[in-house]
C-alpha cells in the first residue's frame, strides 16, 4: 500500500505541510517494502491554476492508495475520489506519525 503525505522537508521526521497540492515536498511511503520516495513539489507549489487536479492525477499515476492532508481542495478531492484514493485529514504531526496513524 502506498501512502502520500505532503511534507515541509525531505525526511520522515519532517513536519507535514499545511497545504496539499502546493506542499513543498511529497513523501510516498510504501508499506509493503517499508521504503519511501521523496518528490520535490516546488514546481507545483508555485504554479498557476489547476494544481490540485495535476497533483491528484500524479498521485493516481503513482498508484497511491491513501492521501493525507490537513484539508483537500475541491479539485484535488474530486480527482482523488475518482481515482479511488482514500483521503485522511491529519495535521501538525510528522510524516512518520501520519503514516503510522493510517497504516493499520
Amino acid at each position: 500500500m502506498k501512502i502520500a503525505v505532503p511534507s515541509q522537508g525531505n525526511s520522515l521526521d519532517s513536519m507535514m505541510d499545511t497545504r496539499f497540492a502546493r506542499a513543498k515536498y511529497f513523501i510516498i511511503y510504501d508499506t509493503d517494502k517499508e521504503t519511501f520516495e521523496v518528490i520535490d513539489n516546488e514546481q507545483n507549489a508555485a504554479a498557476g491554476g489547476g494544481v490540485g487536479v495535476k497533483v491528484g492525477q500524479d498521485l493516481a499515476n503513482m498508484g497511491v492508495n491513501i492521501a493525507i492532508a490537513p484539508h483537500f481542495g475541491p479539485n484535488a478531492e474530486q480527482v482523488l475520489k475518482t481515482a479511488n484514493i482514500t483521503m485522511k485529514s491529519l495535521s501538525n504531526i510528522t510524516v512518520k506519525e501520519a503514516v503510522d496513524a493510517v497504516r493499520q
Binding site: 491554476g49 492525477q57 479539485n75 474530486q78
Partner: peptide
C-alpha cells in the same frame, strides 16, 4: 494546457472553471 480535463483509468472528468 490548463489541467481542465483529466483522465483517470476509464473515467474522464472536466473542471469547467479551469
Amino acid at each position: 494546457q490548463y489541467h481542465a480535463i483529466v483522465n483517470i483509468g476509464k473515467k474522464t472528468i472536466v473542471f469547467p472553471e479551469l
